[in-house]
Design a protein around this nucleic acid. Structure first.
Lengths: 349, 349
DNA sequence: ATTAGCACTCAATTCTACCGAGTGCCAACC
DNA sequence: GGTTGGCACTCGGTAGAATTGAGTGCTAAT
C-alpha cells in the first residue's frame, strides 16, 4: 500500500511518465515554432501514443499544476517557467554537431594573444555557435600573486602604478600626491613596493611604513589604491559577444531595449553570473534569477575551472524558449576548452 | 546680364530663399513627427507666407532636384540624404539646455580615475544627453613616448612585456621564447629595452642588437611585438555608450540588428570615425559614409584635440532624421570638455 | 480510463467600404 | 509671370462585418 505513492500527491514534485512526455512534447514544439501548441500536434508527435482528447485532459492537469499556460481560451498551451524548469531538469545532455566541434577545435587551436583577447574572441565564438548573446567573465586577479609592481612618474604629482600578476593580467592605477615627488623618491618607493608586495595577493593585507616622509606616503598611497579594487567586479574582464543577436531572438522592441540596456551595465551582468555560480545554478529561467527586466530571458552559465580554482565563467542569454540542449552543450564545451587552454598554458612552464 | 545667374542654373548648388525655407520646414517637421510632410502644414508653418499650392509647386521642383522624395503618390514629402545635407550645411549652431550644460559640467567636475574609465563614462554621458548611441575613441599611444618598459617572467618561456606611455596608457604583450630564459637574462633584457626605448614613440624604429644570444633575441622579440600594434585601431580605446538606444531610435528589427552588429565590430567603428576625421567631415548622412548597413543612419563626429594634437574623437550615431542641431551641440560641448579635461591634467605638472 | 463526437470560443484573416490627407492640374486672378 | 483657389483623383489607413479554423471542454459511448 505504501509502496506506491498513488494517493498522496497534491502537487507532486515529479510527474508521471505520460505527463512528462506530453510536457516535453509541448516544450520542444513550442521552442521551435514559437507558437502555442495544441493537443493534436502533441498526440501525433513521436513518443505519445494516445488520442488528442486524452492529451487535452492531461494538459488541463498540467495547467492546474502550473507547468503550462493558455494565452487565451481556444489557443494551444505554452510552457510556463516552471514547465521549462522541469524540461531542463530532465534534459539528456546534448552534443555539438561535428561542424561545430570542428569550429571550436579550430578556434582554440589557432587562438593567440593576451588573455583578454582570447576571452573576447571566445565570447564571439560562443555567440556564433548558439546564435544567442554570449558572456565571458574572467575571474579577475584577486587570487593571483603579484609578480612585479612599478611606479612610473607621469609628472611630479601624478604617478602611475603598474602591477603585473601571476595570471598574466596587469593592473594600472593613478596615484596622486599632494607633494612634488622627485624621481629618486619615486624609484625608491617603487623598490619598496616590490619588496613589500611581490608574492602577495590582493586579498592579503601588508604592513605599510607608518613614517611621514614622501617615500613612505607614496608607498602607503600606492598600496591602498591597489587594494581598493572595485569590490564586485574586481577584474574588469567582462566580454559580451553577439549583442546584436538580441534583436534577432526577442520580439518586441521594448524587450530588446530592456535586455540591451541590462547588457550595457557590465557590473549587473557580472553579479548575475556570480549569483548563479554561487547558487550552483547552471540555468536560470524567467523569474528565477530575480532580475525583473530579464523576465522573458533564460540564462545559462558554465564555470571555468583552472587547476581546481574558479577562473571565470561563460554564459549565454536567450529567450526562455531557447534551445537548451544545444546551448548547454555549447557552453559546456567552450568552458572546458577554455579551461584546458589556460590550464595547458601554465603546464608548459 | 551676367550679373544675375538667372538663366544658368540647371541644378543650382544653392537654393533660392523660398525653396530653402520650405526645405527647412519639411526637414524640421519630418524630424520630429517621423511622418511625410504635406504642403499645407509647410504653408502654415511660421516662416512660410505662401499658399499650399505654391508650396506644392516648389516641392515638385525640390523633388526634381533630389532634395525631397515621395514615399508614394498622395503622401507628403520626405527629405532625401541630399535634403538633410543641405539642411545641416545651413544649420545655425545650437546650444545645450541649461540642465544639460549643468549635467556636463557636473560630470567633468566629478569624474575621476584612469583615462579609459573617463572615456567610457563620457560615452554614457553623451548618449544620455542625446538619446543616441555614442562613441568615444581614444587616440591610442602611437604618438606618446615610452616612459618605461618592463619584462616580467611568467614562466621560463613566457614573458610579459609591459610598457608605460607618457599619456598614461599601458600596453601589455606576451613574448614567447623558444628557449628557457633565466631570470638574469630577463632582467638584463628588461634593462636593455629601457635603455633602447625610453623616450621613443611606437612610430620610431630603433636599432636592435643583432647578436644571437638569448638576451639579444629576447630584446629583438620584445621590440617587434611592441611595434606590431594593430595598424588601424592602434589604441584599443573604443567605448560605445547607449547601444540600447539603437532599439529605441530605429524602427524595424532588421535595421536594429544591422546597426548593432556594426557596433560590435569596433575596428569598423574606428575606421568609420577615422575616415570622417580624415575627410574633415563632421556629419555623414545615409550613404555619405559608404557603409552599406548604415544607410539609414547619420553619424556625427567631433575631434578631441589636446595641445594641438589629435587625441581622439567623440561620435554619435542616430537615424538620418536625428536632431542635428542638438546632437552637434552636445558632441561639440563634450569634445571640448574632454579636451580641456585632459589638457588641464597635464598642465598641472 | 480512453476516446470519438460535437458544440463552442476566439484570434487571425479577408473583404469591403470609406475616409481623408495629399497631390497634380487648371483656370482665374493680381 | 508668379500666385492662388478650386477640383478631380490617388491611394494608404482604418473600421466593420463576415469568415475561417485551430483548439478547447464536455459528454456519452467503448
Amino acid at each position: 500500500m505504501a509502496r506506491r505513492e498513488a494517493k498522496t500527491k497534491p502537487t507532486a514534485r515529479t510527474l508521471d511518465a505520460r505527463k512528462a512526455t506530453i510536457l516535453e512534447a509541448v516544450v520542444t514544439e513550442h521552442i521551435d515554432t514559437a507558437q502555442p501548441v495544441g493537443s493534436s500536434s502533441v498526440a501525433h508527435s513521436a513518443d505519445v501514443a494516445v488520442s488528442p482528447a486524452t492529451v487535452r485532459s492531461e494538459m488541463v492537469a498540467l495547467e492546474r499544476e502550473g507547468y503550462l499556460a493558455q494565452p487565451h481560451t481556444s489557443a494551444g498551451r505554452v510552457p510556463t517557467d516552471k514547465g521549462y524548469r522541469y524540461f531542463v531538469d530532465h534534459l539528456t545532455s546534448g552534443v555539438l554537431s561535428t561542424a561545430q566541434q570542428h569550429q571550436v577545435k579550430d578556434f582554440f587551436a589557432s587562438v593567440r594573444g593576451e588573455v583578454e583577447d582570447v576571452l573576447e574572441q571566445t565570447s564571439t565564438l560562443l555567440s556564433q555557435l548558439t546564435s544567442y548573446t554570449a558572456v565571458v567573465v574572467g575571474a579577475g586577479h584577486s587570487h593571483a600573486t603579484i609578480l612585479s609592481v612599478q611606479l612610473v612618474s607621469l609628472d611630479a604629482r601624478h604617478q602611475l602604478l603598474v602591477a603585473v600578476f601571476s595570471d598574466g593580467s596587469v593592473a594600472k592605477h593613478s596615484v596622486l600626491t599632494s607633494f612634488d615627488a622627485g624621481s629618486l623618491e619615486v624609484s625608491e618607493a617603487s623598490r619598496q613596493l616590490n619588496a613589500l608586495l611581490i608574492g602577495t595577493t590582493l586579498e592579503q593585507r601588508v604592513q605599510v611604513p607608518s613614517r611621514h616622509d614622501n617615500v613612505a606616503t607614496l608607498v602607503r598611497e600606492s598600496v591602498s589604491v591597489l587594494h581598493a579594487e572595485r569590490p564586485v567586479t574586481d577584474g574588469e574582464h567582462v566580454f559580451i559577444g553577439g549583442s546584436s543577436k538580441v534583436a534577432e531572438v526577442f520580439d518586441g522592441v521594448e524587450t530588446v531595449r530592456k535586455v540591451l540596456s541590462i547588457l550595457e551595465q557590465e557590473l549587473l551582468v557580472v553579479s548575475l553570473v556570480q549569483d548563479m555560480l554561487d547558487q550552483g545554478l547552471s540555468v536560470a529561467i524567467g523569474s528565477e534569477h530575480g532580475y525583473e527586466p530579464l523576465l522573458s530571458c533564460a540564462v545559462i552559465v558554465a564555470p571555468v575551472t583552472v587547476d581546481g580554482a574558479p577562473a571565470g565563467a561563460v554564459g549565454l542569454l536567450g529567450p526562455t524558449r531557447m534551445k537548451y540542449r544545444e546551448a548547454l552543450a555549447a557552453a559546456g564545451v567552450v568552458s572546458q576548452h577554455l579551461a584546458r587552454h589556460f590550464g595547458g598554458e601554465e603546464e608548459r612552464g
